[in-house]
């Protein structure tokens, strides 16, 4: 554990809590992509299967359980409790265009051809692109509420901080995982355009509105 990873995890946790609280407090999931949240739930489910096979640390187990629970709670809020507020007409990204390449890539580029390892790899590749339906929704409606943009900023910062963690681990522990690094860089790059808008608009008190 180093400071970059800890900050990354905190940022990830913050993002998930911001989203849950936003939906709960406003009693609405308007502007939130249910598809992205489904992809994140799939990501955590396939990645954290090792919860039942091997123990890493109390911290590790605790965070995994929180991420899983929060993710399923979010799905429940969007698709069950506040279903009437779900903006289905704007959540039109075709996720099969993500699932197909992610599945093929995980079968081809993995560390070991075993079920648990392939599911881990699948989750890493899927996480990298899971935010696309959400970003697509923001670009389609041309705007995002500021609380939604805080969520996206925290979520994007998480993988960015993980990159610093990987650089640190490479030098300090001679540890590196090319699959995680490749997918993590892709994931962070996907947020770049959003980061630019967040810093130039939201932080200056303006609404996140895309140029027409």
């Amino acid at each position: 554990m180093n400071i970059f990873r800890l900050l990354g995890d905190v940022s990830h946790l913050l993002a998930i809590i911001i989203l849950l609280l936003k939906i709960w407090k406003t009693r609405s999931c308007a502007g939130i992509s249910g598809k992205s949240q489904l992809l994140f739930a799939l990501t955590y489910t396939t990645r954290y299967l090792d919860l039942v096979t091997n123990f890493v640390s109390v911290y590790n187990t605790f965070m995994k359980v929180v991420f899983l629970a929060a993710s399923y709670a979010t799905i429940w809020l969007i698709y069950m409790k506040f279903r009437a507020t779900y903006d289905q007409n704007h959540d039109t990204f075709r996720i099969e265009f993500l699932l197909l390449p992610v599945t093929i890539l995980s079968l081809v580029a993995n560390h070991e051809f075993t079920l648990i390892e392939i599911l881990w790899t699948w989750s890493i590749y899927l996480e990298a692109v899971a935010i696309l339906p959400q970003l697509f929704m923001v670009s389609k409606t041309g705007e995002a509420e500021s609380i939604t943009s805080h969520y996206l900023f925290a979520l994007g910062s998480y993988r960015g901080l993980y990159i610093l963690n990987w650089i640190y681990r490479y030098y300090m522990e001679s540890y590196y995982d090319l699959i995680a690094i490749f997918a993590g860089i892709l994931q962070t790059v996907l947020y770049c355009d959003f980061f630019y808008l967040y810093i130039t608009k939201v932080l200056r008190g303006q609404r996140l509105q895309l140029p027409a």
């Binding site: 995890d9 096979t53 890493v56 590790n60 965070m63 070991e112 881990w120 993980y162 090319l178």
Partner: peptide, 10 residues
């Protein structure tokens, strides 16, 4: 690279 399943990150 990784011999068995031992990913320690989230």
């Amino acid at each position: 690279i990784l011999q068995s399943f031992k990913h320690d990150e989230l």
